[in-house]
């Protein structure tokens, strides 16, 4: 048999701060973020990799944190919704979602924000089709998506205007 330990130490940079924790290998990244680090802005929705509420950025890419083990993210850089606000100032995406009514109940919003952030990093001036394609893995049951798309367009404009 192997000499694998029951727990493993992981070191992950979360929102710019390096954290070290002993974790069980079966711990999901979303639970690591929510339970171990108390960053409860990242939500668990369907818990089956469908709804996208748990979307975070790992090493620059949007991923569903309910379908990744914390040990798989060892050594990586994680950005959660808590990392968007800087010095008390909402991120332009958060500002735009607020102004354009891009949310109602808000449950899907952290995931929507993180997927939108990944989109704008890659494509600063996305078309409606680009936005719809990029948010296809994020489900919203309130808004009908129209205002979410408007929010992303508005944020893109704000970011471009600096």
């Amino acid at each position: 048999m192997s000499d694998a330990k029951e727990t493993i130490e992981v070191e992950i940079t979360v929102n710019g701060k390096s954290v070290r924790r002993e974790v069980e290998p079966r711990l999901l990244l979303v639970e690591f973020i929510r339970e171990n680090l108390q960053l409860t802005g990242t939500h668990v929705g369907c818990d089956t990799s469908y709804c996208g509420a748990c979307t975070i950025i790992l090493n620059g890419e949007a991923i569903k944190s309910c379908t990744l083990l914390a040990v798989q993210a060892d050594g990586g850089e994680v950005l959660t919704v808590e990392g968007l606000e800087q010095d008390g100032q909402l991120h332009p995406l958060q500002q735009a979602f607020s102004e354009c009514h891009g949310l109602q109940c808000g449950y899907c919003t952290p995931g929507m924000l993180m997927s939108s952030l990944a989109l704008l990093a890659e494509n600063p001036d996305p078309s409606v089709k680009d936005i719809r394609k990029r948010l296809a893995g994020n489900v919203c049951r309130c808004t009908g998506y129209q205002n979410i798309i408007k929010s992303v367009q508005s944020a893109a404009k704000a970011l471009q205007e600096g």
């Binding site: 996208g52 979307t55 569903k64």
Partner: peptide
């Protein structure tokens, strides 16, 4: 295949 998040992993 699936959505952008799943395709990234």
């Amino acid at each position: 295949i699936a959505d952008p998040q799943v395709r990234s992993l």
